[in-house]
């Protein structure tokens, strides 16, 4: 693949096992900075697993074993010198189901900054406002910051979760099928938001929806059975795939 952009994440011969199950097979790729990279493929193909290795959320699943290397801006994130907490602060994540904490809107956003040691009220206020603005939610909730996050609609909750991830000032944002639980209108809003965010963040998204990948992303990676089948500019991959299996998948012949 040819790209003029600098790559931020480099994955080198990555193998991942859940117990005896070989979930990722010899995966290598470079993910460019300040662009949207989409992972597509049928369920169980390893796309979410790879995403979760990028902020080491897989660490918590017992029996997971990893070989190979993942480096972010030159640092091997599985090396002993990297704090997993710092890593996750730099690599934010948005999940499939909106998962706001049972707290107020304000406290949801302030949760991360507080963890990382910010106590000053004014700084927190500022972070909350900036993050909610970045997630295009500020205008809708600015008068109700003390309300429970559960009072929001599903789409708003998901944008709240995006704002919460942005509040710790990450460089990379991972989105794990972040719109699959939402209605079409909320999905559209989040897609627009993602377009805007890519100017400031490197975004890696897993999506079950090929059309979404085609609409939103710059690069697309197609996975099958734990392997990368094809990795290319989104336009090229969808219009002129070089692998037969990719063509079968995008033309809806399976998956």
């Amino acid at each position: 693949m040819q790209t003029t952009m600098t790559s931020l994440i480099e994955i080198n011969k990555l193998n991942l096992y859940y117990g005896s199950f070989h979930a990722l097979k010899n995966v290598s790729m470079r993910i460019p900075e300040k662009a949207i990279t989409a992972f597509i493929g049928p369920s169980g193909c390893g796309k979410s697993t790879l995403l979760r290795t990028l902020n080491r959320m897989n660490d918590m699943i017992p029996g997971t074993r990893i070989e190979g290397e993942i480096s972010i801006s030159g640092t091997d994130i599985y090396s002993g010198s990297v704090d997993v907490e710092t890593l996750r602060k730099k690599v934010g994540m948005v999940f499939q189901q909106p998962n706001p904490f049972p707290k107020s809107i304000y406290d949801n956003i302030a949760y991360g900054p507080r963890l990382h040691g910010i106590r000053d009220r004014k700084t927190l206020d500022e972070i909350v406002e900036t993050s909610l603005r970045s997630a295009v939610l500020w205008e809708e909730v600015k008068d109700y910051l003390k309300r429970s996050a559960f009072s929001l609609s599903g789409g708003q909750q998901q944008r709240l979760c995006i704002a919460r991830a942005l509040a710790v000032n990450p460089d990379i944002l991972l989105m794990d099928e972040a719109t699959s639980a939402l209605d079409p209108i909320s999905t559209l809003k989040i897609e627009e938001l993602v377009q805007e965010l890519k100017n400031r963040y490197t975004i890696v998204m897993v999506t079950h929806n090929m059309h979404q990948a085609a609409r939103v992303s710059n690069q697309t990676v197609f996975f099958l059975n734990g392997e990368v089948v094809e990795y290319d500019e989104t336009e090229k991959l969808f219009s002129n795939p070089s692998d037969q299996r990719t063509e079968d998948y995008i033309s809806g012949r399976f998956g």
């Binding site: 972010i72 801006s73 030159g74 640092t75 990297v82 602060k89 990382h116 040691g117």
Partner: peptide, 14 residues
């Protein structure tokens, strides 16, 4: 900038 991503000033806090 590249390389600076994990040079976090609040390492101590962590």
């Amino acid at each position: 900038g590249a390389k600076s991503i994990f040079v976090d000033a609040n390492r101590k806090q962590i």
